[in-house]
Design a binder for these strands. Structure first.
Length: 493
RNA sequence: GCCGCGUUCGUCUAGGGGCCUAGGACGCCGCCCUUUCACGGCGGUAGCACGGGUUCGAAUCCCGUACGCGGUACCA
């Protein structure tokens, strides 16, 4: 397991890359690198109806943003391509025919309506969802019930058909999942899965098996939602005469509201489901990766902070847990803070510039932005917060925090502020130290507490009751700006 | 309904028969630092789903129950 590891991340371009998909990709990536193997990206676009424009690009950009470059893929080349299933159609047909020839599959001509009618007919309280299987297939229109001539003539006439896997009842399919150990299913519970759809394209089940074999995939690492169909895949490998890759079914990522994380039950709770939302939300890739890695995996000791390379070294599938993990956005926030604070001011300035640009704010030099970063980095969670919470560095406050104002703005406040203003006006050197000294003097002279003046000044200048050191902020903003803001506040509050 | 998988603090988890009066992290609470917000430091809160076994001994092994989740498509 140390030289020939080849794993793949095989998303289907039916939407923007899901955060759960990113974790699946991550585990594949970590496993591949830990074992000095290859990580492959394969696009599973066999469902024409669900294809979403731009989805493939989104998957690729997201993966690259997260620092997970693949060794082979649609835009990366590789010896086992093409890496888009829509470009491999003839391959699947060929293997479906092999299965047909060997009696492992058969043609079926039933319309969706006829299948639906069959289900209605067979439905009981004991069996609410009848299958197309060894029993029901005998009453349907397929090459098993039709004469050879009839089948041939239907095929020749161009009648629509699908190819279904012929499941033999009475068997048990067992396999050893790397995460769940022995898993077994009875074939009686499996249905005659459609392998080739009437549009001539394969279903996931066939395509995935054919491609994994042809691409020499050693380990299939995917979400638990595939566990139920794994026995069909095992059977397919067996019927095709191939050795099945090792399976590892990952626990699902759950919503705090219950159920698997989906747009519906997550975004209302402030949890974005698309990776692109984390990118645009100002999250650090390292933080997201670290957080995601720990959602279902643990190194077995008390360490919490792992960068990609450290994850690669520590990661094993044996340490992946079996049960679903609830997505805890507070913990992601904590990780993000850790990584953000570990960055140099220079890179943070770049991030801040990008954020400002998105808000249409320009015209600040690097020295100014560096000071903003210095003042803000310890008290925000994401780079984007430096703009949202530090807007007062770029524009005067438009309104004043009600709670803080109610608490701090008293009748004597305007008098104190005016006195402070007058002193500041006279200041020979406008610096944070001098400003603090001045404020102290005013406060002392009036026999009131420090906060009696400091807080109102803060509200007047920044609009809020909290934030970075007020005097540093005042120095950065400049004398004129500060004077104007206080005067405005005196009128407006 | 049927099939499968799972179940340790609110959440992520460590734990693989005695080291566990169950450890860490997030969150929350308190204290310290700070004449402001934070950062930081220290401390606290809280958990082995339930019932039977096996064993000298069970969070750890077995069985059952409950609950949760997934699957049950010509979607992936």
């Amino acid at each position: 397991m140390s030289t020939n590891v080849r794993v793949r991340f095989a998303p289907s371009p039916t939407g923007m890359l899901h955060i759960g998909g990113l974790r699946t990709a991550l585990y594949n990536y970590l496993f591949a690198h830990h074992n000095k193997g290859k990580f492959i990206l394969r696009i599973e676009d066999t469902d024409q109806n669900r294809y979403v424009e731009g989805a493939e690009e989104d998957i690729i950009t997201s993966l690259k943003w997260a620092g997970m470059m693949y060794d082979e893929g649609p835009d990366a080349g590789g010896g086992a391509g093409p890496y888009r299933q829509s470009e491999r159609s003839t391959l699947y047909k060929q293997y479906a025919e092999q299965l047909l020839k060997e009696g492992r599959a058969y043609y079926a001509f039933d319309t969706p309506e006829e299948i639906e009618a069959m289900r209605e007919r067979l439905k009981t309280s004991e069996n609410t969802n009848p299958k197309y299987d060894a029993v029901s297939r005998q009453h349907m229109t397929n090459s098993l019930t039709l004469s050879q001539d009839e089948t041939t003539s239907r095929l020749d006439s161009g009648a629509p058909y699908v190819i279904r896997l012929k499941i033999e009842p009475g068997e048990t399919v067992q396999f050893n999942d790397l995460i769940r150990e022995a898993v077994s299913f009875r074939t009686d519970d499996l249905d005659d899965q459609v392998l080739m759809k009437s549009d001539g394209l394969p279903t996931y089940h066939l395509a995935n098996v054919v491609d994994d074999h042809l691409m020499d995939i050693s380990h299939v690492i995917r979400g638990e939602e595939w566990l139920s169909s794994a026995p069909k895949h095992i059977l397919l490998y067996r019927y095709l005469g191939w050795e099945a890759p090792v399976m590892a079914h990952l626990p699902l990522i759950m919503s705090p509201a219950g159920g698997k994380l989906s747009k519906r039950n997550a975004e209302a709770l402030g949890i974005p489901v698309n990776v692109r939302d984390y990118i645009s939300g100002g999250y650090e890739p390292d933080a997201l990766i670290n957080f995601l890695a720990f959602l279902g995996w643990s190194p077995g000791d008390d360490r919490e902070l792992f960068r990609m390379q450290e994850l690669i070294e520590a990661f094993t599938l044996e340490d992946v847990s079996k049960s679903g993990a609830v997505f805890n956005i507070d913990k992601l926030t904590w990780y993000n803070e850790q990584y953000m604070r570990s960055r140099t001011n220079d890179t943070l300035v770049e991030a801040l510039k990008a954020e400002l640009l998105r808000s249409g704010i320009t015209g600040y030099n690097d020295a100014y932005l560096d000071s903003v970063v210095e003042l803000m980095k310890e008290r925000v969670s994401k780079t984007s917060d430096m703009v949202t919470q530090g807007m007062f560095f770029f524009a005067p406050p438009t309104d004043y925090d009600e709670k803080a104002t109610a608490k701090a703005w008293k009748t004597q406040t305007p008098l104190l502020l005016e006195e402070f203003l007058a002193e500041v006006e006279q200041l020979p050197a406008y610096t944070a130290v001098a400003l603090k000294e001045t404020l102290s003097q005013v406060v002392e002279r009036n026999g009131v507490g420090f906060g009696k003046l400091m807080l109102p000044a803060r509200i007047a200048i920044t609009g809020t009751g909290g934030g970075p050191d007020l005097f540093e902020t005042m120095e950065l903003l400049g004398k004129d700006e500060v004077m104007n803001r206080v005067k405005t506040a005196l009128k407006k509050v």
